[in-house]
Structure formats: C-alpha cells, structure tokens
Design a protein around this nucleic acid. Structure first.
Length: 573
DNA sequence: GCCGTTTTCGGCCCGACTGTTTTCAGTCG
C-alpha cells in the first residue's frame, strides 16, 4: 500500500485544483492547500500513526487541514472534496493536465465549447471552434495544440518513481503467494529507463494459477486486460499497465534475460546464439539441432554459455555493450554504495520542506562522507534568498555536529540569459562548492543557450551545472543547445555536469551522458532533495548514470573529499 | 487556509513572460 501521506497529499492537491477551477477561493487559499499537500507528502512520520495533535505539528497544516486529514483517516474520504467533485464541469481537471492550460482557461473551454476530454478539445480547435472566443487568439490555439502534443508524446508513460512504487508493492504482495519461488521486476523498469510505458514483473512457480489469481485480485488492479496461464495483464486506476509472467523455476534465468530486454539487446544476443548453432528463448538456451536444453537457471549461465560475461540490465540497449562484453571490457559501473557525497540539496530556507538539521541527519543515515547544502540564490526571486540569510545559514551549518560527515556550504546559482550568475567572485569564493542551473528563459535559441551554458562553465566559481537540460518530463521540453560544444567547455574548464535524480528531471539523460563522457566530462550524481523523503531518489540517478556507462572515476561525488576539494581548487586557481 | 522575534489581523514566493490586450489576465517557476 502507498503511504497514507501520499494518498492524502494527492487528495489535498485535488482539492487545490478544484478550488482553482470553481473560482470559489482566493489564490492564497488554493496555495495553502498546495503547501499542505507538499508538507504532508514530505513529512517524515507516517500520518496514519499520528493523532490530531501530531498531524497539527506538520508545517502548513492548521486546524482545517488537520480536520480533513483526520476525516480521511477515519472514513477514507474527505467530504469537502466529494462535494466539490460534483460541482466542477467534467473534464476540466483533465484539460489542466495540458501544459500551458490553467484552471481559468480550462473551465472556459469546458463551458463554452462543451468539451470534456483532451481529444475533444483537440478536435474542437482543429475545427476552428476557438475562433471568436474572447481571450483565445490564434497563438493560444497553437499553444494549446502544442501542449496537447507534449502530453500525447508522454501518453501512457509514467515517471520512474511512480512505476517503481507500483511494481514494488505488487512484487511484495505476490512474493507471499504460496508456490512463488522467485519474483523480480523486469522490462524497462529493471533497466532504469527514465520513463516507463508498462511494468513487467516476472515470477517463477511450478503452478502459475495461484499467482495469477492473486495478481488479478490485487487492490491495485482496476481492470484485467487479459489473463492466461503464463501471462496476465492488468491496468491500475491511474492507467498504468502491469504484466505478470510466470515461468517454471528451472527457466528463471532465461526468462529474466528475455523479459528484461531491451528488444535490440535481445536480438543481438539471439544472433550470437544462432551463430553458435544454439537457440535462445524465454525457456532456455537450447542446442539448435538436437533441441536439448543447455542452460536456463540463471542469467549468468545463459550469458556465459554464449561466451559473454553477465551484462548489467542498465547497459542492455545494444549501445556497444555486446562488443564490450566480448572484449571483456564492460565498465565497472558506479553503484549507490560508491557515492561518498551529495552535492545538490535544499532546506526549508528556500523551497525545501525539511529543515537543515533534519536534512543533515538524513544524509548521515545514508552513510555519506560529505554533504553539500545548496539552497537557491537570490535571483530566483520567488525564493526570497538574501546574502544575509545565506551567511546566517553558513554560520548555522558550521556549528552543526555531523559526526564524521563533512558538511559543505554551497548554493544553487541561477544562470541568466547571458550566462552570468547571482554573486560576484569575491562572494562566491566563500562557498565550498556551487551548482549553477537554468531556471528561466527556456526558449532562447540554440546558439544563445549554448553561449549561456559555456559562459557559466567558464565561471571559476561554478563547479556543477545542475539539471543541464532543464526539462520536466511530460511538462517542459529540454532547452535547445549545441550539447557537444557545451560538453567541450565543461571538460576544458573542469565543470561537472549533473545527473539529477529527481524523477521528473532525470537530467542529464543517458544518451547525453554517454556523449559527454566521450568528451572527457566529469559528473555529479545528486538528489536535488527538497525533503528527507527525496534522498531515496538517488537510485534513479544511479540507474541513469549506469545507463550512461559511468564509473567511479567519472563521478566527482564518488571521489574522496580531498580529490573533490582539489577539483574545486583547480578551477579557482 | 496558515501563520506569528512587526503575532490574532493582514499578510501570504513575486516577478517574468505571453498573448491578448489598449492596461491586463493567465500561467509558470
């Protein structure tokens, strides 16, 4: 089951959206619901274990919010939300999913055009029904269509953390079913792709029936798409398809290899089998002539019999891993255990939700050797940072006892359209390390963005470029730049590029990591945590880094602190 | 609706950008 915190946060968020749509509340009230939702989601305690007094301790959760949370915990619903749901035009919430379309326009469109779905809206715009609607000119129509296109491109795909949560819950439930010998996540989720179309789960059992029955009966299954003895597909309430395949225990390794993919990788592996007069299927590796089963128990055996070492799932994309494996030159991929520090994190001094001491304690729990606090710099005006606040935080941080973990004081600077950042060199020199990121002007031309990023790299006090493409998966496309030119500048100046672990960023992406690595760039794999709850996201960054073939030597926060300090010092000198 | 070292009212993240407007509304971060 998902944490009650997440369920309640989703309900409060929906309340905020509905209030916005109905226009029955001022913007501050709407924001209050949004803030409460975020605080509940990020709160370290499970709210289902708290009483009303405990719930009231959550920041931004006051009397009214506490009552709603308690109501949910006691009855499973929030009356005010149920009531609002009946009052809004059907479809308005769905239209708000379109990037660029907010509550006001969404409700106008549902009322004036009588459209309830994204498809109907697209059809209405293409039929010219927007003409003459006040406030909706030709540009707006274009923008909405573009937003719909963005949405469609992501259609059916969910963020990796959503898919992981669903998959882990199902694996955990099915592993309890009698007769289940093995069970594992397979498919693109096992390969850590940055967004997931459907979830594949593989189980081994002599008799598949109990597993299939249990799978179909899961609370998460809102619809059974199809079901047979070896494969059953369900759809969750949120529309995510989950496939369960059950194979005999003896076929486990071959099946896991087969169902992990990618398709391109498997084709290459099967070609190798064919050349060796073998046949590979999900049931095992067979002698092509006699049909005798050779191996099938483990993935390692299957690869080994084909003359290959075991290939990590994150590399299985036919991007050179087969050749590298044949040469016995697979990279020693970085793992979460290799990371010694986190170099991009926030606190509640800016837009984080956890205070400094809580974040530091969570970092110590991760077993980190060093930890940088990098709150937003003043030019991101909405965060209301000031030089004074920054210095006060530094003093507080210096006074904290983090045991054997070293605390670093940093900041996340804003790269302006010309590549300048918030402070001058004298002030920047006071930071142990800095991240610099694009937070505005996302639509500059490619040459302008390229220059902007190169200038930032050339700043002696910029150590890491944060989430370099500034994309938000499903919401905002990446900025356009000549990335190879940026990579050359990063490598030449000793500026690391970030692999941001936030599920909706996953930035850089695997393909660009590969390209950057070839040009000698170094990387920082960071959480960008805004809450202690976000520390776990590091696994997604690690998965992405592995897909980019990164090793310990490529990643500055896998280095000992002395080497990291030398990296920073070298650029400043 | 939340909050408080300017505290029980009166603020609230606030400015940029875009497109539609002739002075502003909507959306976003």
């Amino acid at each position: 089951m998902p944490r009650a915190n997440d369920t309640v946060a989703a309900l409060l968020e929906e309340l905020a959206d509905l209030l916005a749509v109905t226009g029955g509340a001022d913007s501050f009230k709407i924001r209050a619901y949004d803030k409460a939702a975020r605080a509940v989601a990020a709160y370290h305690e499970d709210i289902s274990t708290l009483d009303a007094a405990g719930i009231g301790q959550i920041p931004n959760v006051g009397k009214s919010m506490t009552a709603k949370v308690v109501e949910y915990l006691e009855t499973g619903a929030i009356g005010a939300l149920e009531e609002l749901r009946t009052r809004i035009p059907p479809g308005a919430l769905q239209l708000m999913e379109i990037p660029g379309l907010g509550p006001k326009k969404a409700v106008t469109l549902t009322k004036e055009l009588d459209v309830a779905t994204v498809e109907e809206l697209a059809a209405a715009i293409e039929a010219g029904k927007l003409d003459g609607l006040p406030g909706f000119g030709a540009k707006t129509a274009d923008n909405i269509l573009h937003g719909i296109e963005l949405l469609r491109r992501n259609e059916g795909r969910v963020l990796i953390d959503t898919a992981t949560a669903v998959a882990e819950e199902i694996v955990s439930a099915l592993s309890q079913v009698p007769g289940c010998v093995s069970i594992s996540i397979a498919g693109s989720l096992r390969r850590f792709r940055d967004s997931i179309g459907d979830v594949d789960i593989l189980a081994a059992a002599e008799d598949s029936a109990p597993l299939m029955e249990a799978f179909k009966a899961l609370p998460a299954a809102s619809e059974v798409i199809g079901s047979g003895p070896t494969k059953t597909s369900i759809r969750t309430r949120r529309g995510l398809q989950v496939d369960l395949r059950v194979v005999p225990p003896a076929a486990w390794g071959a099946a896991l290899q087969y169902f992990t993919g990618s398709k391109a990788h498997n084709i290459r592996v099967r070609e190798i089998a064919v050349h060796a007069k073998l046949k590979l299927s999900e049931y095992g590796l067979f002698d092509a002539e006699t049909g005798d089963l050779l191996v099938s128990q483990t993935e390692e055996e299957v690869y080994e019999r084909l003359g290959l070492p075991w290939i990590p799932p994150t590399l299985r994309e036919d991007r050179g891993e087969i050749e590298a494996a044949l040469r016995r030159e697979l990279p020693a991929l970085i793992t979460e255990a290799d990371l010694r520090g986190d170099l991009h994190t926030h606190t509640d001094l800016t837009d984080g939700v956890s205070p400094l001491d809580k974040m530091v304690a969570a970092a110590i729990d991760r077993g980190l050797e060093y930890y940088a606090v990098t709150d937003h710099a003043p030019n991101l005006v909405m965060q209301r940072m000031t030089t004074e606040k920054m210095l006060a935080q530094r003093a507080e941080l210096r006074s904290l006892d983090a045991g054997s973990m070293t605390l670093l004081h940093g900041t996340e600077l804003n790269i302006d359209p010309l590549g300048q950042v918030d402070w001058d060199g004298d002030f920047l020199a006071g930071f142990d390390i800095t991240v610099a990121s694009v937070h505005s002007h996302f639509t500059l031309s490619s040459p302008e963005q390229t220059q902007r990023l190169i200038r930032a790299c050339e700043n002696a006090y910029v150590n890491i470029i944060g989430h370099p493409r500034a994309r938000m998966i499903g919401k905002r496309p990446p900025i356009d730049a000549d990335w190879d030119a940026v990579f050359e500048a990063a490598a030449a100046t000793g500026t690391a590029l970030e692999v941001n672990s936030f599920p909706d960023r996953m930035d850089l992406s695997d393909d660009l990591i590969l390209r950057a690595k070839r040009r000698g760039v170094k990387f920082a794999i960071d959480t960008d945590a805004h809450s202690t709850r976000h520390m776990r996201n590091i696994r997604f960054g690690i998965g992405t880094a592995q897909r980019g073939w990164l090793t310990v030597d490529d990643v500055i926060n896998a280095w000992p602190l002395s080497r990291l300090r030398a990296f920073v010092a070298a650029k400043r000198s």
